[in-house]
C-alpha cells in the first residue's frame, strides 16, 4: 500500500456539499468546525468550477514541521494524524497549512482559548484504542480500520471526490480523462479551473494558429 490521498475532479463536482455534510455527520464535528468544505472558482460565471478541500495528508506536511509539541504523526499509509492530548492550541499548524485544514473549535487548551486543533483524519481515527468511545469523541469515526474509505468520498454522488491509495485514485482519474477524449486540453489549469468561456477562447486561439 502506498499513500492515501484525496483527489477532487473539478469537472464533476456540482457543489452539492454532500461531502461536507457526510463528514460532519460521520465524525460529529463540533459547531464552527468544518473538516471539509467546497471552494468554488469563478462563482456565478457560466462554467464555474468547484473543488472539495480538506487536509491533503501532505507527504511533507508543514503542520508537522511547525508543531512545537510534536503532536503530529504519519501512519504507515501516509495519513497525517495528531494527538489531541498533546495539542496546546497554539495555532501554528493553522498558519502553516496552505489548505486551511486545521480548525479550532473554541474551548480550553493550554494556550489561548482556541481549543485543541481538529482536522480531517481520513476517517482513520487517532491515537486511542481502535473503535473506542474516546477515539470517536476526540477524532471521529475510524472507517479505515473497518476496511472502508472516508465517508466524504464514498458519499460523493458524482464521484468527483476520490479517496484511497494514490496509485488507484490516479488510475481512475487517468481513465476518466482519456474517456473524455479532449486531446491536448485534457490536462492543465484551464481544464481544472477555467470557465467555459475561457476554455472556448483558448480553443479558438489554438485553432486560429493552425
Amino acid at each position: 500500500m502506498g499513500r492515501m490521498k484525496f483527489l477532487c475532479d473539478a469537472e464533476r463536482c456540482i457543489e452539492c456539499n454532500g461531502c461536507v455534510t457526510a463528514c460532519k455527520n460521520e465524525n460529529e464535528v463540533p459547531w464552527g468546525v468544518n473538516r471539509r468544505r467546497v471552494v468554488t472558482m469563478n462563482d456565478g460565471v457560466p462554467g464555474e468550477r468547484s473543488i472539495s478541500v480538506a487536509c491533503m495528508h501532505c507527504s511533507d506536511a508543514p503542520c508537522m514541521a511547525v508543531c512545537p509539541t510534536n503532536c503530529f504523526y504519519k501512519t504507515e499509509e501516509g495519513v497525517v494524524l495528531h494527538d489531541k492530548d498533546l495539542c496546546i492550541g497554539c495555532g501554528y499548524c493553522f498558519f502553516a497549512c496552505p489548505f486551511g485544514a486545521p480548525q479550532f473549535p473554541n474551548g480550553p487548551a493550554a494556550f489561548g482559548d482556541r481549543g485543541k486543533m481538529d482536522k480531517c483524519t481520513f476517517c482513520a481515527g487517532g491515537p486511542e484504542e481502535t473503535g473506542s468511545k474516546a477515539e470517536y469523541e476526540k477524532y471521529g469515526s475510524n472507517r479505515i480500520a473497518e476496511g472502508k474509505l472516508p465517508a466524504c468520498a464514498e458519499m460523493c454522488s458524482t464521484k468527483a471526490l476520490l479517496a484511497g491509495d494514490s496509485s488507484t485514485v490516479s488510475d481512475i482519474f487517468r481513465d476518466r480523462v482519456l474517456r473524455r477524449g479532449k486531446g491536448l486540453e485534457a490536462w492543465g489549469w484551464m481544464t481544472a479551473y477555467g470557465s467555459g468561456d475561457q476554455q472556448r477562447e483558448q480553443k479558438r486561439e489554438r485553432e486560429g494558429q493552425k
Binding site: C67, T75, P127
Partner: peptide, 18 residues
C-alpha cells in the same frame, strides 16, 4: 527534526475485523 511525542496508534488491520 522533531519526533512524535504522543501516544502510539494501532495499525488499521490490528482489530477484530482483520
Amino acid at each position: 527534526q522533531g519526533k512524535y511525542q504522543g501516544k502510539a496508534d494501532a495499525q488499521p488491520w490490528d482489530n477484530p475485523t482483520f
